[in-house]
Design a binder for these strands. Structure first.
Length: 649
DNA sequence: GCCGTTTTCGGCCCGACTGTTTTCAGTCG
C-alpha cells in the first residue's frame, strides 16, 4: 500500500533524543520498501522492510528504551540492518544513506504505482528506457505510441496503461468500511441470486472488518458445468463500469455507484448494515465513484478453502500455510493437500487428494486450531491463541446495553433528550449517556457548546425523566455527562465544580490544529495530564483522525494507555472510547487489545447527533471485535444499574 | 534484510490471469 504521506525523510523537531516517533520510523521503513521496489531490489529484502514497518508500528513497548537497552534485534523481524537504521534515526536524528535512495526516485514514479496493472518493474523500465518520471509524461508517451514498441510491452499494454490512468482519475482509492460493506453486501446478494450459484459470500478485508476496504472479493460456489453461464450473467449486470478480466475461475470488474440505488430500490437487501448506517438515508453515500470487485468461482467442495484463502489477511495466510507445511501439507485456495500425494500436481488436480472441509471450522481443525473469527485474522497472535484454545468470545451487538457519548439539542444534536432516550429504548438498551459539547466549542463565531448553567439544568431534567421511568417500572435511565474540550495544556473545559456534578466526563480534543502543530512528546504529556484529572472518565476519539480525511495528531497512545491502566489499578475509572462513527473508528483497533491488557475498560460510543446515529455502535462493535474484546471488557455491556453505580462512585 | 534442535548460507507462500511470448515475466491478491 502506498502511503499518502509526503515522500521526504522526516526532520527532527527536537534537540535531544529520541528524535522520532514509532509512527515516523514505521512510515520511513514502509517508504523504503516502496522505493526499493522501484529499484528492482531483492523481493525478500523489500518484504523485510515491510515487515519491519508493521512490527514497529504495532510495537507495544517504548522504542527508545528498547534501543537504549540494546534489545532492538530481539524483536522478531528486526535484525542488524534495520536496528542500526532505527538506532541512528532515534539517537542522532539522521537517516544514514537513505537520502540518496529518496533523491534518486522521482515522486512521479511513486504515483505511477497507483495505476492498476502497472507495477514497479515496468515503471522502472519506462524510467530507464524512455525517461518517463510522471503520469503526465507516461500519458504523452502512450499517446505518441512510444510505449508499445518496448520489450515486453505491446499495443494492448499501452492501451491498458491509458485505461488505468483514466481509471485512477475517477477511482477514489480505499472506501470507509460502511461504504465498502454496502457495495460488498449488495454485490454479494446479486451474485447469489444468479442461477447456478449455489452460495456466494463476501471475503477479503470487508469480511475482516478493516476500517477501510480496498476492493471486494466474492467467493461463489459454482459447479464446473455452470461456470460459463454464471460468468455471462455476472458480466450482464448493468452496473459494471468495466471488465478488467474474465477467466475460468475469476471475473474481475469495476462497479458503478448506481449498483447501490438499484439494489435499494428493489428492496432485496435489508441486512443489519443498512440499519446501522441509517437505513435508506443513503443520500450521504458518495453517489459518484467506483469500486473494484472480483468474483472467484470454485466447485462446491473447495468453497471453504477458497473463502478462507480470500478472507486473508495475507499475513494470516502465510502463517497458516507454514503450519500446514510443518505437517507435510500444502494449503492453498483449493485445499489442504498431503504433499506426498499431491506430487507435481497443481491447483484443482492436486486438490483431489485434499482433506475434506465443508466449512472453515474443519480447515482449522485439520491444523489443530480453533476456528478463528475473520476479524482476528491479522497475524496478531490469533493463530497461537487458536492453538492453545484461548481465543476470546468476541462481543456481539446484542451484548450492548447502552453507550455514554451522545448529543442533544443542547449543543449540536438535532434530537431532544426524550427522543434520544426513546431511540435507545427501541434498541432494548438500559442506559444512554448524554454528553453535550462544553462551553468553549465554537463553529465560526457561533457558540456550539453548552454554558455551565444550561448544562446543570439538563441534569435536573434528566433526573426528572429518570424518576418517571423508575416510577413506571421501566428499566431505563439517562446518564448525565458532558464532552469536555481538552485545552492545549491538557486541562479540561468548565470549572472543576461543574464537572464534579456530572456522572461522567468525556474528554476530547477539538482544537486539532494546535495539537497537530506539536510533536508526539508534548501531546502525550498533555493527554496524560488530562487523564490524571479526577473528573475525567473517558478519552473521546483519542487521535481526532477522520478516515480518508485527515490524520490525527501525533501521540504515544501506548504511554497514555499504560498510565490509564495504572490509574484503573488504583481504583479510578479511566476508560478509552472507540468512537463508532464510521468516519472515525478511533481508538484504532490496533491499540484496543493493548488497552484491554493494561486493564483499561473500553467504551463504544456512537457520538450520535440524532436518533439514527445511535446505530453506528454496530461499527464500534466490529472494531472492538478486531481488538479481541469480550463483553466484560466493555462499559457498554454493564447493566443500567451497574453502570449507574460505577459512575456515581 | 531476516532467520536458523538443518546457525553464517540458502532459503524466504503460492496460484491466476494477462500479454507477450513459443516457455515466461509482470502484476495482483
Amino acid at each position: 500500500m502506498v502511503s499518502i504521506k509526503s515522500w521526504v525523510l522526516p526532520k527532527s523537531r527536537r534537540d535531544e533524543a529520541p528524535h522520532f516517533s514509532k509512527a515516523q520510523i514505521a512510515t520511513v521503513l514502509e517508504q523504503v520498501a516502496t522505493l526499493l521496489k522501484l529499484k528492482d531490489a531483492n523481493p525478500f529484502r523489500i518484504r523485510a522492510y515491510e515487515n519491519g514497518s508493521r512490527t514497529i508500528a504495532s510495537l507495544e513497548t517504548d522504542l527508545w528504551e528498547l534501543n537504549l537497552s540494546g534489545k532492538l534485534t530481539e524483536v522478531k523481524g528486526i535484525g542488524k540492518g534495520i536496528s542500526a537504521l532505527i538506532s541512528e534515526a532515534l539517537g542522532e536524528g539522521t537517516w544514514g544513506d537513505l537520502q540518496s535512495l529518496y533523491d534518486s526516485t522521482p515522486e512521479g514514479m511513486i504515483e505511477m504505482l497507483a495505476i492498476p496493472g502497472l507495477g514497479p518493474k515496468r515503471i522502472k523500465q519506462l524510467h530507464d528506457e524512455l525517461n518517463i518520471d510522471s503520469i503526465a509524461e507516461l500519458t504523452a508517451a502512450c499517446n505518441e505510441d512510444a510505449v508499445s514498441c518496448l520489450d515486453g510491452f505491446g499495443s494492448k499494454s499501452q492501451q491498458k496503461i491509458l485505461d488505468g490512468i483514466d481509471l485512477l482519475a475517477r477511482f477514489q482509492g480505499r472506501r470507509r468500511l460502511n461504504v465498502g460493506l454496502l457495495y460488498g453486501e449488495t454485490f454479494e446478494a446479486m451474485v447469489a441470486r444468479i442461477d447456478g450459484v449455489e452460495h456466494a459470500q463476501l471475503a477479503g478485508s470487508a469480511r475482516r472488518r478493516r476500517e477501510t476496504v480496498g476492493d471486494l472479493d466474492i467467493v461463489a460456489s459454482v459447479k464446473p458445468e455452470n461456470v460459463e453461464a454464471v460468468t455471462e450473467a455476472i458480466l450482464a449486470i448493468p452496473d459494471i463500469a468495466e471488465v478488467k478480466g474474465a477467466g475460468d475461475s475469476k471475473v474481475s470488474v469495476i462497479l458503478e455507484a448506481s449498483i447501490l440505488e438499484r439494489n435499494l430500490d428493489l428492496g432485496t437487501l435489508d441486512g443489519g448494515v443498512f440499519h446501522a448506517i441509517g437505513g435508506d438515508d443513503y443520500s450521504q453515500m458518495e453517489s459518484s465513484g467506483t469500486i473494484e470487485a472480483q468474483v472467484r468461482m470454485v466447485p462446491p467442495h473447495v468453497f471453504a478453502f477458497t473463502l478462507a484463502y480470500f478472507t486473508g489477511s495475507k499475513e494470516h495466510n502465510i502463517k497458516m500455510r507454514q503450519l500446514a507445511i510443518d505437517k507435510g501439507l500444502r494449503l492453498n485456495e483449493f485445499g489442504l493437500i498431503p504433499e506426498d500425494k499431491a506430487g507435481d500436481l497443481k491447483g484443482l488436480d492436486a486438490a483431489k487428494y485434499s482433506l475434506n472441509a465443508t466449512n472453515e471450522d474443519e480447515i482449522y481443525q485439520h491444523l489443530g486450531l480453533d476456528w478463528v473469527p475473520p476479524e482476528l485474522r491479522e497475524d496478531m497472535g490469533e493463530i497461537e491463541a487458536a492453538k492453545s484454545k484461548s481465543l476470546p468470545r468476541l462481543v456481539m451487538p446484542t451484548d450492548l446495553k447502552g453507550s455514554l457519548h451522545n448529543h442533544t439539542t443542547l449543543s449540536d444534536g438535532v434530537a431532544t433528550l426524550e427522543q434520544m432516550a426513546g431511540a435507545a429504548m427501541d434498541m432494548d438498551w438500559e442506559f444512554l449517556g448524554i454528553a453535550d459539547h462544553s462551553q468553549i466549542l465554537n463553529i465560526g463565531d457561533r457558540q456550539i457548546g453548552a454554558n455551565a448553567e444550561d448544562l446543570l439544568e439538563q441534569g435536573e431534567k434528566i433526573r426528572e425523566l429518570n424518576d418517571n421511568w423508575s416510577d413506571g417500572g421501566k428499566n431505563f435511565r439517562l446518564l448525565h455527562g458532558a464532552e469536555c474540550d481538552i485545552l492545549p495544556d491538557g486541562s479540561l473545559d468548565y470549572e472543576p465544580e461543574t464537572r464534579q456534578q456530572l456522572g461522567h466526563v468525556i474528554a476530547s480534543v477539538h482544537q486539532l490544529s494546535t495539537w497537530k502543530a506539536r510533536d508526539e512528546i508534548e501531546n502525550t504529556e498533555a493527554l496524560i495530564k488530562t487523564i490524571e484529572d479526577p473528573t475525567c472518565t473517558i478519552i473521546g476519539h483519542p487521535t481526532g483522525r477522520i478516515l480518508q480525511g485527515r490524520d490525527g495528531f501525533d501521540v504515544d497512545l501506548h504511554a497514555v494507555i499504560r498510565r490509564m491502566g495504572e490509574l484503573n489499578s488504583e481504583g479510578e475509572l479511566k476508560s478509552m472510547e472507540i468512537n463508532a462513527s464510521p468516519y472515525r473508528l478511533d481508538l484504532d483497533w490496533r491499540f484496543v487489545r493493548f488497552a484491554r491488557d493494561q486493564g483499561v475498560p473500553i467504551c463504544i460510543n456512537p457520538d450520535a447527533h440524532d436518533t439514527t446515529g445511535l446505530r453506528d455502535v454496530w461499527f464500534g462493535v466490529q472494531i472492538a471485535r478486531k481488538g479481541w474484546l469480550e463483553p466484560k471488557d466493555l462499559l457498554n455491556c454493564y447493566s443500567g444499574e451497574e453502570i449507574e453505580a460505577l459512575l456515581s462512585r
